[in-house]
Design a protein around this nucleic acid. Structure first.
Lengths: 116, 116
DNA sequence: TTTGGTGTATTATGTATATAGTACACTAAT
DNA sequence: ATTAGTGTACTATATACATAATACACCAAA
């Protein structure tokens, strides 16, 4: 995993985990890697992963059993609304960004099609 | 202007100025506000604006005459390639983001049309 | 030549991020 | 009870960002 220097690493890791959950790479109820293990995998400090899990817990995306580990939420509803939330943000960023650049909605679609 | 807390202010200001240039709100050769003036307008520290202008100068988007001020580049070519660069990035972020979320290219377009 | 408006440089302070290292609390399995 | 693997808490250090305040260098116009 590569990190963008201009965005805090812990936020990038959070987004990445959310993506994995939404796409089903991480399934509902599944155990996440331990703080130390994920820190090792991503080559970041355990404190950074601790912050990641705390934030995910706060958002009810994961839950933690002390001494046991951190798990993906079992609420499918949470996951589906997470997917909708993320995709909406991506679409909004795109439309707003292109509009600000002077592209009309028509031009925006044709430019997109042209790119694909 | 509102700032996103997770991204350095100076980068957000840079992006904003680039946008204004690309859309023609700031025209080729036009004088930019002075460091102190823009700092006042945006309610940020002059040092932050100094950094903004230094970076824009480095990218040849602007040029600075010491003691005189900072001006938008006179090279229309620089501006048009800037527009292309920015729009490409927006499109790429969109397509990549949606793909990572599990949307195929077809779904991606239909979801976008649905949104508009 | 002086003045006022430019950009530029420097030092200091506070906050957020990230790392490093250590210790503690809890749980399951031995 | 002990052990190993969890999450959690704490202190310290380094860096980037942003602010604050001050001073300096340059240029055009009065």
């Amino acid at each position: 995993m590569e990190f963008n220097n201009n965005i805090p690493i812990y936020l990038q890791i959070i987004d990445n985990i959310k993506q994995d959950i939404v796409v089903g790479k991480l399934k509902a109820g599944q155990k996440m890697p331990s703080v130390r293990e994920l820190a090792g995998i991503l080559k970041v400090n355990p404190n950074t992963i601790q912050r990641v899990y705390q934030e995910l817990d706060r958002e009810k995306i994961t839950f933690t059993k002390r001494g046991m580990g951190t798990y993906v939420t079992e609420e499918e509803k949470t996951i589906s609304s997470l997917k909708e939330e993320i995709s909406k943000k991506i679409i909004l960023d795109f439309v707003e960004g292109m509009n600000k650049l002077g592209f009309s909605n028509k031009e925006l679609i044709s430019t997109l099609k042209e790119y694909l």
